[in-house]
Each structure stands twice: as C-alpha cells, then as structure tokens.
Nucleic acid binder design. Structure first.
Lengths: 127, 127
DNA sequence: TTGGAAATAGTAATCATTACTACTTAGGAA
DNA sequence: TTCCTAAGTAGTAATGATTACTATTTCCAA
C-alpha cells in the first residue's frame, strides 16, 4: 500500500476521536483539511483500512456503516437517550475463550452490540 | 396490527428454518405460495415483525440485511468456509449480567457476531 | 352490512456505496 | 536525478437494496 495523505488524514480522523463516524461525517471533516477530496476516495480508503485491519467497520448501529478504532471493545446503545457508549475490555466477559472451550470453534474476533438503558438515564429518570 | 396471510407466510418462512434469509430470499420462497406477492410487501412486513419484536434483523453478516428467529443466540462466521453458525445460549457466557454488574447500564438485548475458524474446518484442514 | 383503518400490488424514487475514466503521484530502479 | 509504472485521485455515472407512493382491496368492529 502506497503512502497517501488522504488515507493518513482519514485514519487520523477515526483514531483521534471517540465517536463512531459514518463515511459522510469523515468526508465532511477531512474536507476541512483537504477541500477537494472526493467522497469516493473516502470510501475507497475506508475499505482499504478495514481490509488491512487498521480500523473496524460497524454495520449494526443504524442504516449506515460507521467506522471505529481497532481495539477490542463492545458498544452499548441506550434506548432512552440514543447514545452509543464504548464498553472497555474490562467491562465485558472473556467471550472468545469461553466460546472456544464450549464450542470447539476458534474465535479470532468479536463484535458485540448491547442495547438497554445507560447508567446516566437510570439515574436521571429512575429507571 | 391486522391479520394478513402475507405476514403469516413471511413469519413462518423465518420461524420454521435454520438459515438467515435476506428479504430477497424470503420473497422468492413466499412467492412459491403466494405468487403475486410484492417485494415491497415483504419489506413492509419484515419491518413490522422486527418492530413488534417477533423477529430479529441482522445487519453485520454482509452488505445485505438478514432476518432471524427471536430467541437469544450468537452468530459465528467461519473465515475459511464462510458458514454462519448459530451458537446456542449454552455456548456463550452470560454477557448481560456481567456487563450490568460491571458498568451499571441495564442490558435488555444483545447481538454478538464472532469470527474465526469453525470446528469442521479445524478438523479437516488441521488449522 | 358497512365505514374506515390497515394491507396490498405494482411501480417509482431514494440514497449509500461502488464502478469508471482520465489524470496524477509515490517511490523503486537505473 | 530521472524514468517508469503501479497505486492513488477527483469527478461523475451507475448500481441496487430499501423505501415511498397510489389506486385498490381486505379485515373487522360496531
């Protein structure tokens, strides 16, 4: 893979933030730095970065694809306020090991989306 | 929700099988029973069934949406042969309880996709 | 029955994503 | 440094899954 400033800029946009941007959001932000970048370029580079394992593509948040950093964590969507929280590794059980032992399949990666009511909403609204 | 034979047929197609059909697959199968059913009707009823909680929509298997029965289980995709396996409840740890305790969020539902090498492929190809 | 809300077939529209094309650039070899 | 060429890009067209629309039909409670 040859170096490209577009790819670097796209990668940084994802790496240095805590949201889960769509291709369109990334396009809008990168455009502030590289004004004439094309939306197709954003999509192509996102696919490459996923392919090479630098970032993760999330397709179960809503109708659009979202992109995220690579480190292992789960997502939790609050049904009350709609926020998408990152749950760190320490917050979730060791699923891979458990499943490998129980099922005999080798687990290489996992994607976990939880839905419920977040801590904040439980406190605020006494749910 | 009013009764409709189309909806019943669509629901049965999902309930009485172990695959994870797309809207198109469901359309083709239901057409064998109700030849003039419209693809729009299939989509509308699938959305209603998801909305009402009778079935589940899965959006992280590939680029298309797949539909599945409601009972709690995880999916595992084999990187070698491509099969999508259902992992029963007994095969996965109690994630909800663990996360609730650790994070303080209330968990109401979960969606887990594992990726790796299935038991069969491991045996066959000694991976 | 019958009135109206919900459902449907058939078709058009939407829009996120991918494909295409002519042009540019990174970076290795001479 | 200067070529060479495979990889990258901008701009735009095409794709295709999903949704919206419309005239018509059907369910079902009063």
């Amino acid at each position: 893979m040859k170096y490209s400033d577009r790819r670097e800029c796209i990668f940084k946009r994802i790496k240095n933030s805590y949201d889960h941007p769509t291709a369109e959001m990334i396009y809008e932000d990168v455009r502030k730095i590289i004004p004439n970048i094309s939306l197709g370029t954003v999509y192509r580079n996102l696919n490459q970065l996923v392919e090479e394992g630098y970032i993760k593509k999330i397709t179960n948040l809503d109708e659009n694809a979202h992109y995220d950093k690579k480190d292992m964590h789960a997502h939790m969507r609050c049904l009350n306020c709609g926020i998408i929280l990152d749950l760190e590794k320490t917050m979730i059980p060791n699923i891979a090991e458990y499943v490998e032992e129980k099922s005999g399949n080798r687990i290489l990666s996992q994607e976990l989306l939880l839905t419920g009511i977040c801590k904040e909403c439980r406190k605020k609204e006494n749910i």
